[in-house]
Every structure is written in C-alpha cells, then in structure tokens.
Simulated assay, not measured.
Amino acid sequence: MRVVAVAVCAIVFLISGPVSAQSGKFKVTLDAGHGDHDYGAVYNGHIEKNITLAVVLKVGRILEKNSGVEVIYTRKTDQFIDLVERANIANRADSDIFVSIHCNANKNSAADGSETYVMGMSKNASNLEAAKRENAVITLEKDYKQKYEGYDPKSPESLAGLVMAQELYLDQSIALAGKIQNHFIDELDKKSRGVKQAPYMVLHKAYMPRVLIEMGFISNPAEGEKLDSEEGQQEVAQAIANAIMSYKKEYFGTDKNDTAEKPSEMMGKDKSYKPTDTVAVAPKPTPKTTEPKKPEIKKPEPAAVPKPEAVGGAAIFKVQLSASGKQLDPTPSNFKGLSNISVASEGALYKYMYGSTPSYEEAKRLLAEAKAKGYPSAFIIAFKGGKKVSVQEALKQ
C-alpha cells in the first residue's frame, strides 16, 4: 500500500509541472453538490441539490464581476455529474482552487452551523460518517466498482493508501477552508463547527487546493428555511465569494478590478490552521495560539548562509513549489533551472521551496518567476522566529 501511495504522489508531483498555457486569470471551479436523480438530503421540503445549485450560481455571478477571475462550473443545471468527473472538470481547466458546496443534515433537528472539509484521513467517527454519506453517491454511477478501482464507499478508510497524494495541497486547502469559516462567523454570525478532514472522493481526485463546504443543516427548521430563501442564499454566497477573494489576495495578489471583498476586507480576521483532524473555529477567536511544527531542513545548499528564518523574529518569505514523497537534490536541474532551493520534511512528504527574502514584494516577484518556469500551483509561505506563520501574520510586522 505504501508503494502505491508513493507512486501516486510522484505522479501528482509531475502534474504540478508544466500544463496547458495559462490564461493569467485566477481559476475557480465551483461544484454544486448532487443533481438530477441524486437529491442529496431532503428535509421539511428543502432539497439539497436545488439549494447547492442556487448558491453556486450566486457565488459565480459575484466572482465573475472580477475580470481577473475565471469561474468554471461542474454543473449549471439540474443534472447528475459523476464524482470523478467533477474533479476532472477542475483538473482539465487547470483550476487554482476547487470548491464543492453542500448542505448538512442530521436526525437531530437541533444540529446547526457550518463546517468546511479538506481532504484527509480521519479517526473521528462523525467525520467518517459524513464522508460515507457523500461518497455513497458513486453507487448511482454506472460501473462504479471498476471506475473507482474497488473503492468501497461504506469504508472511507480504503482511501488510506493514497494519503500522501492528498497532502500535496493540504496547507493551501486548510488556509482556504479557514477563510471560509471565518467569513461565515464574521459576516453571518454563523455558528462554526470548524475546519475538518475527511476522505471525500470528490476532493481526492482534484489536483489543486480543494474544500467541501457544508453551509448549514437543512434538517434544522430555522437554518433550512434560511438556506432555502433567496436572502439566505445570497448572504452565504457573498461570504463564500469574499473568502475566495481573500484567499486569492493572499496567495495570488490583487487585481485592480477585484470587487468581491467588502470595503472592510475582513482585515485581521483570517486565522491560520494546522493540518489536524479537526480545527475548531470559535466565534471571535484570539490570534493564533499554536504554531505549526518547525520545518526540518533536510538538504541546505552547500554554499548557503544560515537560514534567516531561524534567526531573530523578522519574517522571511519563500515560494513553495511542490510537495512529493520523492526526495530530490535541491539542484537547478531538478527544478527547471531555479536555484536557491530549500527542502523541508514533514512526515513522509518533502516540500520544496524557492528563494528566501524578507521582502514580500520580492517574494511576489519570485512567485511570478516560479510560475513562468512551470510551477502554476506555487504559492508564497512565511516564517517568523523560526516557525511557519500565515502570510497575513508575517505582513503585520
């Protein structure tokens, strides 16, 4: 099983290299959960497939006001799309992010609040149960046993062998999920059930930062009524669009025509999330109280000076190029001619970073250079006092 995981991760690493010509726009694939004969959850007259489609179309209309954003839809009508095809639509478009939108449901009608999932294995029984419910959709597809290579939707743990491939975009996925939850809290005063990990098949097959949003419980009379209303859908759509534009600003920069963010731009309200099973998002949380594990530098360049991020408290920016289960020498020949490559090891995964600068403007230049060299999914990361922090926190210095 480990051999399979490494092989898959190596394939994904290659995928992060040159692809089709880039349009220069920030590409967002929006996925409305369920469709046609797959109704999703149905409670009190509220039908999930209809609500998700309505919200996705609203999010898309908001984002499309920005000339620097291109929106791709997995469906724009009441139709059934295979889970793997939803991911493939995003992959073929070479999207920068994939956002799948759903409604939650529970036999306990008092359950309420939103939660956002990233792809990951979980020991949490409720997370696994949620994944089982959503993944069961594949049984409605023809030849699903062959198509999904024997995957059993009743046993999400059967995805465990591919855990390394999913980690390729985990940090970015968590950052996007965190922004979504915080915008729900700050704009809608919505109860947050946190950022969580679970093995969703629709996320597993998408090779980019990706999240699955559970907007709220249609099994809850009040929340279901709100989600099934024009006003409620518009509010949720605006919060999701604002979160996406906040993510774009942090990782891809801002275009002069970006308009989805409200004037306040939610300054100072985005938090950082660690890749844990469940990351709670409490109302009005205090600034970051825990820091991710300090990256272990495996192979510094022979002629490199001591890493600045390990000295003092000044922020240092780098560009993360890719992640892989395969360890590579940090030489230009292995990174499309880029030099000054550093390597950090997290578990069985190696993360490759380009450059090291205290200037965010220089980091943006390095990011543009990396993308021009064939790393379209590269993004800026930051370190402060020897520990990884969010770019937004680093910019507060």
Rank of each mutant, 00 (worst) to 15 (best):
V3G: 03
A10G: 14
K25Y: 08
N50S: 13
N50E: 11
L57H: 06
I62R: 11
S67F: 13
G68T: 06
F80R: 13
I81G: 13
A87F: 09
N88Y: 01
R92I: 05
R92D: 12
N106S: 14
A110C: 07
A111M: 11
E115R: 08
E134D: 07
E149G: 00
L159G: 14
L162G: 12
A165Y: 11
Q166D: 08
D171Y: 07
S173D: 04
I180Q: 01
Q181K: 01
D189F: 13
K196H: 00
M201A: 09
V202F: 01
L203S: 08
H204D: 05
P209W: 01
S219N: 02
E223H: 04
D228W: 10
Q234L: 10
A243H: 03
M245R: 07
Y251A: 07
Y251T: 11
Y251S: 06
G253K: 05
K256F: 09
P263Y: 00
P263I: 00
A280I: 05
P287L: 06
K288M: 04
K288R: 11
T289A: 04
T290V: 15
E296D: 13
V319E: 01
V319C: 03
L338M: 11
S342T: 15
L349W: 00
S359K: 06
E362G: 07
A370Y: 06
G374R: 08
G374W: 12
P376G: 04
S377F: 12
V391K: 12
